[in-house]
Simulated scan of single mutants.
Amino acid sequence: MRRVTPLLAGLFGLLSLHTDAADLTTQLTQFFKARDATHAENLTVVLRTPAAQWPQCDTPQFFVAANSRQWGMISVAANCGQERRYLQVQVQVTGDYVVTSRQVARGSALKASDLSIKHGRLDVLPARVIVDPQQIVEAISIRDITPGQPLTLSMVRQPWRVKAGQNVIVIAQGNGFNATSEGRAMNNATATQPVRVRMGNGQIVSGKVDADGNILISL
């Protein structure tokens, strides 16, 4: 009977390690593709954590923090029953992103003609980069933006649907109850944001702005 030499044993160990690494990377890739189906075809996961810190089961359950960025270096919790390990992975994604086609001054409303599309690595761009131009058409720049600069959600805000001092329609709704009145907005707000309204009798109420600029109150 042949004995397995230390060299062969080491080679078998390396082969097993590479197989396990491929399997774990495949599972992580499937997890992140399900998380970002839009870019699934152009998504690659690179496992950066040493093998000694990998989960000790065949099919770990993966979790990421709710505020985790979508691409780039991400910490992933891998659960095997009651045991939890943390993996550092690099999620590489290629796709389209939005840049400005001209100099945009702070306070300007963005138009479709101000925007262009570029293609490249999304994971190396700033967090919350904008990939859909429709998401920010009519949005207001809150800083000066240079031509060709990738746009992020932190550079813009949605336009005010209601401004302080503006007369607004207040719609109060409840169980079998619906009433409409008028008041004056006390603060600026975009759609879905809260706003305080002073009614004609002096009472102050709070509600949320709808897409038409009306104030909705639930009773």
Rank of each mutant, 00 (worst) to 15 (best):
V4W: 12
L8Q: 14
F12E: 13
L14Y: 14
L17V: 01
L17G: 07
D20M: 04
A21H: 07
T25G: 07
T29I: 05
T29M: 10
Q30D: 15
Q30A: 11
F32S: 02
A34L: 09
R35G: 04
D36T: 06
A37T: 14
H39A: 03
H39T: 00
A40M: 11
E41L: 06
L43D: 02
L47V: 09
R48N: 13
R48G: 12
P50L: 06
P50M: 01
A51S: 15
A51R: 04
Q53I: 07
P55L: 12
F63W: 05
V64C: 14
V64S: 03
A66Q: 11
N67E: 15
S68M: 03
R69M: 07
R69Q: 12
Q70I: 10
G72S: 04
G72W: 12
M73A: 06
S75C: 00
A77G: 09
A78I: 09
Q82P: 12
Q82L: 14
R84M: 13
Q88D: 13
V93M: 06
D96F: 01
D96W: 08
V98R: 09
V98W: 05
S101C: 08
S101M: 02
V104I: 15
A105Y: 09
R106T: 15
G107W: 05
G107A: 00
A109Y: 03
L110K: 02
K111H: 11
S113L: 09
D114G: 04
G120M: 11
R121L: 13
R121T: 13
R121W: 02
V124Y: 01
V124F: 02
V124P: 01
L125T: 01
P126H: 11
P126C: 01
P126G: 04
A127V: 13
R128E: 11
V129R: 04
V129D: 14
I130A: 03
V131P: 07
P133Y: 07
Q134I: 08
Q135H: 14
Q135F: 11
V137A: 01
V137C: 01
V137L: 05
A139C: 04
R143G: 07
T146R: 13
L151A: 06
T152K: 10
T152Q: 08
S154K: 07
M155I: 00
V156G: 00
R157L: 00
R157Y: 02
P159D: 08
P159V: 08
W160L: 13
R161W: 10
A164G: 15
A164C: 11
N167T: 15
I169Y: 00
V170C: 09
V170Y: 08
V170F: 10
I171K: 12
G174N: 09
F177A: 06
N178A: 01
N178C: 02
E182A: 01
E182W: 01
G183T: 08
A185I: 07
N187P: 07
N188Q: 07
N188S: 09
T190G: 12
T190V: 05
A191H: 11
T192M: 14
P194D: 10
R196P: 09
R196S: 15
V197Y: 04
M199G: 10
M199Y: 02
M199P: 13
N201H: 04
G202Q: 00
Q203A: 15
S206I: 08
G207D: 03
G207Q: 05
K208I: 13
V209W: 01
D210A: 09
A211R: 15
G213H: 00
I215T: 02
S218P: 03
L219H: 06
L219I: 13
